[in-house]
Simulated scan of single mutants.
Amino acid sequence: MTERKFTAADDGFHFDQMDDDWWATETAWFSFHHPERRLGGWFYTMARPNIGIVSGGAWVWDDTACLPWEVPFSSNYTALPIPKDQDLTDIRLPTGTTIRMLEPCMSYALGYDDSGRNLFSADLRFDGVMSPEPLTAAGSTFGSAHHFDQFGRVHGHIILLGERIDIDCFGMRDRTWGRRPENRPRRAGYITGMADADTGFLAVTNIEGDVETAAYGFLRRDGRTVSLAEGTRTGTRDPATGHMSSIEMRLTDQEGRKLVARGEPVSKIVINRHTFIDINSLVRWDCGSDGIAWGEEQDMWPMHHFERMMRANRKGG
């Protein structure tokens, strides 16, 4: 797959690069968390220019619940109009999310307004601690779409159910544009962890039967980001819920640097996204000599695959 750099032009929409395919799609995602409160959060935007709609919104969860109608905040719109005469460099979306580019490719002001319900608002800033890293494997769940990932420091505050909560963490953002049909999903994982500005990892996995291997990702150590050469995800699942209860990542980058990270999911939210579900966990990682990291595990399942597993669990095998 041809590697390309993320440039200032990529902070905006890429609608002029897309053909007239119904499934032409562009996304922008930012994450944040508060480890002591076991609280995680997302802003997610998905635009489909050829049918004129934008979907997504914001989610905030903790260890009290995992269903979207029980967590502290969940707002997932499906078909609102794309704002005219605005770009992702400075946009107020009808989903409630605002994004303003402060420094090309690196820094963004993020906000959220829940339209007068007074349940959740946000005033945050994302500052990249590394350059955006391009997708290098067409065999991952992102296929041949343009895709970039970037760790950054997220700081500022949110107001959740009337309470102000200060945020200062290392979060992830990604950007994707290309073809994304709703019937495409397959089982996959998107796993992140970051101990400090110079130390972290990303692995995007493919799953064949009981074998889960890294299709794409990187290790960041001593401030240097190197693509993965290989990796695996293993762990245990709670048979009653199907959710991961422990995770182990074994990763090797293209310079031979290795990482073993053992993760404990501390809270989660189950997000229903058309034909698949994303069981998204906030995870505390023990990375050995690399220290304690925090990040996420997105455990993605086509719905009929997850149903099949749970039906087998209820039958006892």
Results as ranks from 00 to 15, higher is better:
282 L>T: 03
282 L>I: 03
282 L>W: 00
282 L>G: 07
282 L>Y: 03
282 L>P: 05
282 L>S: 02
283 V>Q: 05
283 V>E: 03
283 V>T: 07
283 V>P: 01
283 V>K: 02
283 V>N: 08
284 R>S: 04
284 R>Y: 02
284 R>L: 04
285 W>N: 07
285 W>Y: 04
285 W>D: 03
286 D>L: 05
286 D>E: 14
286 D>V: 02
286 D>Q: 10
286 D>C: 08
286 D>R: 10
287 C>Q: 05
287 C>L: 06
287 C>W: 04
287 C>P: 05
287 C>D: 02
287 C>R: 04
287 C>S: 08
288 G>N: 11
288 G>F: 14
288 G>L: 13
288 G>T: 09
288 G>I: 11
288 G>H: 13
289 S>G: 10
289 S>C: 02
289 S>V: 12
289 S>E: 15
290 D>S: 10
290 D>W: 07
290 D>M: 14
290 D>G: 04
290 D>K: 07
291 G>D: 00
291 G>V: 05
291 G>N: 00
291 G>P: 04
292 I>V: 15
292 I>E: 15
292 I>L: 05
292 I>N: 01
292 I>F: 06
292 I>M: 06
293 A>V: 10
293 A>Q: 07
293 A>K: 05
294 W>M: 14
294 W>R: 07
294 W>N: 06
294 W>K: 01
295 G>V: 05
295 G>R: 04
295 G>F: 01
296 E>A: 12
296 E>L: 14
296 E>N: 13
296 E>W: 15
297 E>S: 14
298 Q>V: 09
298 Q>F: 10
298 Q>C: 07
298 Q>T: 07
298 Q>R: 05
299 D>Y: 13
299 D>I: 10
299 D>T: 00
300 M>Y: 00
300 M>P: 03
300 M>Q: 15
301 W>P: 02
301 W>Q: 04
302 P>K: 08
302 P>E: 06
302 P>V: 06
303 M>E: 09
303 M>L: 12
303 M>I: 15
303 M>W: 12
303 M>C: 09
304 H>T: 10
304 H>G: 00
304 H>D: 12
305 H>G: 08
305 H>P: 05
305 H>Q: 15
305 H>C: 12
305 H>F: 12
306 F>Q: 03
306 F>P: 06
306 F>S: 05
306 F>R: 14
306 F>T: 07
306 F>M: 13
306 F>C: 09
307 E>F: 08
307 E>R: 12
308 R>E: 11
308 R>H: 09
308 R>D: 11
309 M>S: 01
309 M>Y: 10
310 M>H: 14
310 M>Y: 09
310 M>G: 10
310 M>C: 12
311 R>D: 13
311 R>A: 13
311 R>Y: 11
311 R>Q: 09
312 A>V: 15
312 A>F: 15
313 N>Q: 14
313 N>Y: 15
313 N>A: 14
313 N>G: 01
313 N>E: 15
313 N>C: 11
313 N>L: 12
313 N>H: 14
313 N>T: 06
314 R>A: 08
314 R>G: 04
314 R>M: 06
314 R>Q: 06
315 K>G: 05
315 K>C: 00
315 K>N: 04
315 K>L: 11
315 K>T: 00
315 K>F: 00
316 G>V: 00
316 G>H: 04
316 G>F: 05
317 G>M: 03
317 G>R: 01
317 G>I: 01
